[in-house]
């Protein structure tokens, strides 16, 4: 009788171990989600990020975009301003692009001429502009997280950022929590 009990325990332990492995193999613990670190403040790379983001919603994925460093100014609202900035904050504010319509191409900018040409070409070919993509992402429930430290470093305050549904300010841990449960992670 005791021997039987022992065997039963062994079997139970084996089953527990196997079901753990099955869980791993079937990818449970990750969701149909894509997490992107949007680091670059270039028009071309931001466009790529939003094309992937909006396309991913169509593919049935939840989408999380974590804006940090040079990408942060793209979320500024050109019609808003914030007072009470120190000298460095004012300098960053003046030197960095004010909003998604002000960002430039990473190549062939040619003092703004290349970017203007690309924008008119995009219009001609019916490609949505970056501000349009951001609006569309909001309608599609793409979640945007903004790096609090980048905001602080560049002297941006929340009141000068765009009105985006559910925009959240956070740190690296929030991004990693999202990324850990995502099937796809990208750095742009």
């Amino acid at each position: 009788m005791e021997e039987k009990n022992e065997k039963l325990h062994m079997l139970e332990a084996q089953i527990a171990e196997l079901s753990g492995q099955v869980k791993l193999l079937t990818g449970q613990g990750t969701e149909d989600k894509i997490s992107m670190i949007v680091f670059s403040g270039d028009l071309d790379k931001l466009l790529a990020a939003f094309i992937i983001g909006t396309g991913a919603v169509a593919m049935g994925l939840d989408v999380v975009m974590f804006f940090t460093f040079w990408a942060t100014p793209a979320l500024r609202d050109p019609n808003k301003s914030a007072g009470g900035k120190d000298m460095m904050g004012k300098m960053f504010g003046a030197m960095l692009p004010k909003g998604s319509d002000a960002v430039k191409l990473s190549k062939m900018n040619m003092g703004g001429m290349g970017t203007a040409m690309m924008k008119s070409l995009m219009k001609k070919k019916n490609v949505a502009s970056l501000p349009e993509f951001i609006e569309m992402a909001g309608e599609l429930d793409v979640k945007i997280f903004v790096c609090e430290m980048s905001m602080d470093l560049m002297g941006f305050s929340r009141e000068e950022m765009i009105d985006y549904p559910g925009m959240t300010y956070c740190g690296v841990a929030k991004f990693l929590e999202e990324a850990k449960g995502s099937r796809i992670q990208l750095f742009l």
């Binding site: 396309g55 169509a58 593919m59 070919k125 019916n126 490609v127 569309m136 599609l140």
Partner: peptide, 14 residues
């Protein structure tokens, strides 16, 4: 018609 990537899949999924 006339819509480039990613609009066709975005619109078809809606």
């Amino acid at each position: 018609k006339g819509l480039p990537c990613p609009m066709p899949v975005v619109k078809v999924s809606k």
